[in-house]
Structures are given as C-alpha cells and as structure tokens.
Design a protein around this nucleic acid. Sequence first.
DNA 1: GTATTCGTTGAATCAATGC
DNA 2: TGCATTGATTCAACGAATA
Lengths: 376, 376
Amino acid sequence: MASVLPLAALRAEPRPDSWLNSIIKGDCVAALEALPDQSVDVIFADPPYNLQLGGMLHRPDQSLVDAVDDEWDQFESFQAYDAFTRAWLLACRRVLKPNGTIWVIGSYHNIFRVGSMLQDLRFWLLNDIVWRKTNPMPNFKGRRFQNAHETLIWASRDPKAKSYTFNYDALKASNDDVQMRSDWLFPICSGHERLKDDDGKKIHPTQKPEALLARIIMASTRPGDVILDPFFGSGTTGAVAKRLGRNFVGIEREQDYIDAASARIAAVEPLGKVELTVLSGKKAEPRVAFNTLVESGMVKPGQVLTDAKRRVSAIVRADGTLVSGGEAGSIHRVGAKVQGFDTCNGWTFWYYEEEGVLKPIDTLRAIVRRDMAALD
Amino acid sequence: MASVLPLAALRAEPRPDSWLNSIIKGDCVAALEALPDQSVDVIFADPPYNLQLGGMLHRPDQSLVDAVDDEWDQFESFQAYDAFTRAWLLACRRVLKPNGTIWVIGSYHNIFRVGSMLQDLRFWLLNDIVWRKTNPMPNFKGRRFQNAHETLIWASRDPKAKSYTFNYDALKASNDDVQMRSDWLFPICSGHERLKDDDGKKIHPTQKPEALLARIIMASTRPGDVILDPFFGSGTTGAVAKRLGRNFVGIEREQDYIDAASARIAAVEPLGKVELTVLSGKKAEPRVAFNTLVESGMVKPGQVLTDAKRRVSAIVRADGTLVSGGEAGSIHRVGAKVQGFDTCNGWTFWYYEEEGVLKPIDTLRAIVRRDMAALD
DNA sequence: GTATTCGTTGAATCAATGC
DNA sequence: TGCATTGATTCAACGAATA
C-alpha cells in the first residue's frame, strides 16, 4: 500500500497493478499523461491557490503568521496560472471515465479561474460547495470580513453524463433525513490529524481535514472506485480512500511530502464491509411489477383503489391493470390520467383500504421485496 | 424620491441633482456611460445569471417549478456572456471613485466568469461572501446537493486602494463582539417583502432580501454615500439605501420593474440615526447531523450503539447511518424500526459506552453545539 | 381567538432503461 | 439514435382555510 512509483517506472509498465494505490513521483501533467485513457472514477484536486501575498503578516501579539509562501504557489500572472490550470485539467479530462466527476477546492484567489476554465473545457458544473470552517484564521487587520470558508466545485466530465455516482440516499439518511446542502461545516485540520515533523513544524502548509475528504468520497464514489489526486501533498485523499475501501492514485513532486504521505497511508486500517455498506437508494432495489401483487393475492381483481384523499378511484383487473372512468392501463398511466398529468408514480399515488385505514400500495411492494430478499 | 429619468434626459443634464436617487431608464452600459467619472462610492450589481435551463421541472407532487426563463437571462455562449460582463464592469469601473468598491452576486452558473473578469480588469478581490439560505429550493431529482447558497464578490477598484469604507467595528459589535465572517445566513425574499401584482404573481423573479442589502450597505458605505445598482430590478438596493440614509442610482430597462421599484421606494421611511442600531434575534439551536459526529471522530464506524437498557444494538457505518438486524438508515429510522414504532428520536434513544458507562449520543451533540455556538 | 392542516412556492444548468 | 415506459423525487416558510 502506498508504494512510490517514479514516473519512468510508470511509463515502462503502465498497468493498473503498477500504479493503483501508489504515489507517482513527478510533474502533475507529465504523470497524468502516462496514465491510460478513462481509467479513474473521480478526481480530487487541491491545486496551488496563487495567493499573491504582499509582505509579512503579524498577529496583534506581534507573532508572525506562517503564511503559504512556497515556491510551488508562485505564478507570474493570471495568464500563467490559467495556462497551468488548463494543462492539468485537460490531462485530467482524458484519464477520467465518461461518467466520472471531478472535485476542485480553492479560495477566492484562484477558484474563479478554475471554475471558468472548467466551463471553457466543457466540464459540466454540478454544484459549488462551501466548506465553512468552524475555526478559521481571524482577519488581523480588520480591513475585510473574516475569510471563513473555501469553495469546492463538483463537475461531471460531460454535460450529458447522467449516471455519475451520487449516493443521495446515504447522504440524506446521514443528515437526519433531509437532503445534504451545498454548505458544509468542518473544522480545519489540526491536532493529532495534522502531520508534523520532529520539531513540531507542520509538514504541509495546506493539509485538508479527513472529514472533508470522507464526505466527498462517500458522496461521489463506490467501494472499489479509483480516486486520483494530482496534487497529493500530505496524502489526505489516499488515507481516506484506503480507510473507506477505495483505490487511490496520487501524484506529487516533492519527496518530503511523498515520504510523509507514504508513512501516513501505511498506518491506515481499512474499514470492514459492514461499516462500508452504503445505504442503497430505492433505485437499487429489485423492480416489482404491480401484477405480482395481484398474482400473489395481496390485491384482488375487482378491488377498488383510491388516492390518499379518496377523490378518485379505480378498479383492479385480473391482468394487473387498472380501469377508471374511460381510462385503462398501468397503475402509473391511469394515475397520471385521472390527475391530468403526463406522469405519475402509481406506487405512491394509489391506496387500498385495510380495516378502514387507507394505505399506499407501496407498502405491499415493500412486503414483496422483503419476502424476495429472504430467499437470497 | 425615486423619480424616473429617461436616458436622453440624463445626457442633456448630467448633474447629480438630476440623477441622484432616481432610476435611469435604459440599457445598463449606455446609462453608465452617461454618468460622470468617479461619481459613486459603492456599486451593487445583480447581473443575469445565465442559467441555461433544460426543460420543465416538476416537483414530486407534479406542480411546475416557475423557473427563471426570462429573455434577459438568455445568452448564446460563455463568450457572449463574458463580453457582456466585460462591458458593464468596465463601465462601472469608470464611474467608481478611486476608493470605491463593488459587490456582485451570482451563482455557480455565472460567478466564476464574473470573478475572473474582475481580476482581468484589475479590480482587487477583498472577499468572497456566501449567502447561506435558510429556506432554499430543494433538489427534486436527488441527483445533486441542494443548492443552498449564492456567492457575492466584494472588490476594490484598485489593488492599491487601502482607504475603502469598511465599518469593521460596527459589524463586530453587531455580531456578538466577534468579527463578521464570510458566510452569512438569511432567508430568501418572501412574504410581505416580496413584490406581487394584483393577481398575486411575483413581479420580479429574483428579488433579493432587504436584509442582505442592509448588511452590504452597513458594512461598506457611510451615510450620504452614493450607491449605484446597474441591474435595479425590483429596487431592493434603492429601498434599503433610502431607509439607511444613503443615496442611490438605479439603472433598469423594463418599465414594469421601474414602476414597481418606484412605488416601493416612495413608500420607504428613512430611519433616524438612533434607529440604525441592529437588533440581534434569539438564535434557535443549530441542527446537528449524526454524521457530523462520525466525521469528527466522536463516533467511529463499526462502533456499537445500544438503547438505555442494552436490549437492542446497532452498528455505526461510515456514512453516518446505522444497521441493526436487517434494518438500515438514519438513527431515527432504525430506532423506530427496532422498537416497532413509526417515529423515534434517535438522539435520545441510542447510547454509546464510555468507560463502562452508557451515555446518550445526545451528549455528544451538545458538545458539537457548544463548539458551533459562536458561528451563526 | 387559537391551534392545526393544507396548499403554495422559491435564480434549477434536476432520470434511467429498454426497444 | 430517438421514443416510450417505468417510476423516483422536496425543505422551509408563509398564508389561507379549517377546526
């Protein structure tokens, strides 16, 4: 796990068993170009932010703020940054599967360049997500609002791609049964999670919290998927991917970061299968035909179904179709017709009466599904 | 107050007493070009978002979503939108005072274009601000995160401008004595504030809440300043500016919007100095998702939860759901199922063990809430 | 008058499958 | 490739209507 792969070795043997779950040492674009077409499911990218800081910044107590002034964050101009962004995004596009998606995180310094470039390159924006920090750095000079969030963009490779992975139901269930919003609240990475050297100095200036990556991976990947991080840094993506039973590929230039990430990932214990099972949506459940209910005797031919308010009714026929007024057909078609709509989910629209109480026929479908599951 | 000024009249008499506190009827760029250099302190702009909607969208109950499909939001391409953005931003730049600032609001459809263009035109970004909506429209199809925020960019005209207005201390005092963050929480505009015609139909599809404009104006202007809104619409900027003792200039093409804004502003009563004090309402307890405990590591995937008497148990999964016997789902749903109930408050039903003692998971929620307390 | 229920609505790039 | 079919899908706030 987390072996280090020199770029030359990857070029010599570009097979999944050489690059899966390893860190490729080399330039981001060059390494991407050595990977095969359409080979990864999701990309998470934390590119340089192009901060363009002025001088030194001191806190009110005169201590010095340890700012991001690394060489890798220096660009000559917006044009240079755009060219860099275009190059790595294009390279990402090629290695992404047709139904793949990409996440990019940034701040106001760079995220507008990234978002525009994604659109220019025909990625399709699905959401922008706000990471609200519980504990952001204050604004020391009192000349601006406290910069308390970062922005993520989630985009699909193609505008037409409809079947990208999005674990909607699991997210909703984990969020007190309301759908997950575009604003997320997490602490910044600190404490035990923050990688430090022997002197207690942070190893990477912009290490991301594992909780953030966990939500991204749980939301947009399935176990066994391949997640690529072209700016691997301290390896948060790899650590969380391994813990959650996903495969990763990291690309990183700096040996110090590779060493730290490698050791970090080696120490990660993957979760077991039970913990990893994602709550499956109703979509994944086996299809049940209405006729099955009639055949099994749960619904009888001639029985009357109504809507929840008993405003309309229909009669069940022996072949599993409904008839209401002059309309006959499937539970969905007749449900649509009696409401004057084009479409209707007959399972939730039609009700049957049991001991004086109206219940949706969907409860009968649930019973059939449970019985079917018991047979496996 | 709120007189309407045809563009021709402005060109004939371009003096402040002709255009201050009036709505200029005409094209945005043409009207801006008729205003003098360096004549406004702050600009608030709510440009078309370029939504690019596909077909119709229905709610689960089959009602139709009344989407923004107005002619003024239609652009041929990103290039066309960029050209439009460049033109009005350049025109804004000229009328802005050297120490002036500009606010632009948008969504992920357009804000990256706007942000990039601001940078290209040598504006200097001060902050990006997130307007978190308390009551956003849901995502009906369950294919994305709920789009629950919009983004504002705040920028100064010049990189060197240091003496722009920012009422840091007033904001801090109004925010429980902690500095104002970059994420703001407001409801969308509805109820009595929403302008409607005689049939009860909304007059403008994208009317902004007055609270949002009030924070912007209180943060970045002084009494007597001139605030320009080049996409005046329903006139929220004018109404709030008048109420807060600032001068405004609006630019708007459509007569219907001008009529509504005009009447609206005429009805506004300016506040006295004393009344400008901001009241802070009582905060409701923030909602905490169970998954937050998992993501933060307070509860671990694989960990066993029980009820208070250890009669039933469940396993925590990495996505923040529980599994018990054949049942899986949220803490509430699984709690209900194992008891044979329809509903259950999982927070008080489930317990975890710490040093041999059972404690309700609600105690962990209380800890999270305490940590979150200062954030809203 | 008060509490409850029901209907409506808001800047939306909103489905998947089989023939 | 397009078309027809199946069936999956919503949160908070407001206001009118009802009890």
